[in-house]
Design a protein around this nucleic acid. Structure first.
Lengths: 117, 117
DNA sequence: TTCTTGACCTTGAGTAACTCTAGGCGGGTA
DNA sequence: TACCCGCCTAGAGTTACTCAAGGTCAAGAA
């Protein structure tokens, strides 16, 4: 498939996919005879994973390392596993931050209510 | 108190506080006779609120509007309440993203496990 | 057949929100 | 006196996009 379909399936924008490719984050993107990118479903799965990792705060540098490992094949799975476990810990921290902020909002809103009545 | 104490109390970095002040996000910051900033505990409470709002994804532009309303006094409380309610909805979306990503990580890690045994 | 439209391409500039560096001032300590 | 420390400003650098300009090519309308 072409880039726009890969975009709508993965969640990433067309521009972002091109940018990610230039940054070496997408292994094995081929080109058709027209010079346009062609994405396999494996590519799209990969892009979807990147979409969620990025959306939840994984830095580009880590994604680059992750992509490089992915490109090297199955013997890098232990390293990739470590990266995802680290990210899982980051998710936990983010959830804590959301909870803490929610608390603060609730307290603030309560104070506003008092002023409004 | 001075900027470094305001920083360690609010969670923000010194540089970020100066940046926020330049962007008009911090009403009523005074200066001592030495030309250095002095922060009241009200300032620090405000900075702490900004810290959590920003950390959980509120854009600067919204924070600017929020700060402008805050500076105008109590009659802007309904507007400020709306901003915080909007932000609360954003938090819910972020939590969904975290959950979804966690799922994806779990699935991926399971696949890795299969390869590793 | 020519014209237009639309999806794709590249390169390079612009943006958001910091973050850091360079260079300078003034107060306290060895 | 010399030095260090925390503060100051202005401006450059960083991250991760995002958009704009200008160009190719194929397919359908006039």
């Amino acid at each position: 498939m072409r880039i726009s379909e890969a975009a709508s399936r993965s969640g990433l924008k067309v521009d972002t996919i091109r940018f990610y490719e230039a940054e070496g984050l997408i292994p094995n993107v081929t080109r058709g005879p027209d010079g346009q990118r062609r994405f396999s479903s494996e590519n799209v799965d990969w892009l979807t994973l990147l979409y969620w990792l990025r959306k939840t705060g994984m830095p580009m540098k880590v994604m680059q390392r992750f992509a490089a490992l992915y490109a090297q094949g199955d013997e890098t799975i232990p390293d990739r596993k470590d990266i995802l476990l680290d990210h899982s810990r980051l998710l936990a921290k983010r959830r804590e931050a959301l909870d803490r902020c929610e608390e603060i909002l609730a307290r603030k809103l309560k104070i506003y209510e008092k002023y409004l009545r």
